[in-house]
Computed example of a mutant assay.
Amino acid sequence: MNKLLVVSAVILNLLLVNQISYADPGHGHKREYRDREARSNFQGNEDDDNLQEKRRLREERGLRRLQQHQWQPGYVMPQHYRGNGYKVDYREQNLPKPAQNQQWYKINNDYILIDSDSNNIIKIQGL
Rank of each mutant, 00 (worst) to 15 (best):
S116A: 15
G62I: 13
Q67L: 13
G126Y: 06
K123D: 01
Y86L: 08
L63D: 02
Y105I: 06
E37Y: 13
A9R: 05
N18S: 14
N109W: 03
Y75R: 15
Q79R: 14
L57D: 08
E46Y: 13
Q52E: 06
V76F: 07
D117F: 00
I124W: 07
N45K: 05
L57T: 05
V88D: 05
V76D: 02
R55W: 09
R39G: 13
Y90L: 07
K54F: 04
N50C: 00
H27T: 13
R56Y: 09
D47N: 13
L57V: 08
P96H: 01
Y86G: 00
Q102C: 03
D110M: 14
Y81W: 15
N119M: 10
Y33F: 10
Q103L: 13
N45A: 00
L95M: 04
R31D: 09
I122G: 01
K97M: 06
Q102P: 05
V88E: 04
G44T: 01
I11L: 12
D110L: 14
V17Y: 06
L4Y: 09
N18Q: 07
L66V: 00
K54D: 02
L113M: 03
E46D: 15
I114M: 07
E59K: 14
P25T: 02
Q70A: 11
Q125H: 06
H27Y: 15
Q72N: 11
D24R: 03
E60M: 14
D35N: 13
M77F: 05
R31L: 14
V10E: 01
L12N: 08
Q52F: 02
E32R: 14
I112C: 06
K97L: 02
N119R: 06
E60S: 09
W104R: 01
D48G: 06
R64H: 09
L16P: 00
N120I: 04
N108T: 11
L14V: 07
G44D: 03
D110Y: 13
D35Y: 05
D47F: 12
D48I: 07
R65G: 07
Y86A: 11
S118M: 01
N45Y: 02
K3S: 10
Q67C: 07
H29I: 10
Y86F: 15
Y33P: 00
E92H: 12
D47I: 14
R91G: 07
H27I: 11
S116R: 14
D115Q: 06
G83H: 11
N50A: 11
W71S: 02
Q72I: 06
I11V: 15
G28T: 08
Q68C: 09
H27S: 15
V6T: 11
Y105R: 12
N45P: 00
V7C: 11
N50Q: 08
R31H: 10
M1T: 09
E60A: 12
L15C: 13
R91V: 14
N108E: 15
D49N: 10
K106P: 04
K54P: 01
N45R: 07
S40D: 05
Q93D: 07
Q70L: 13
D35E: 14
N2Y: 05
L4C: 04
I122W: 03
Q93F: 09
I112G: 04
W71E: 00
A99D: 05
G62V: 11
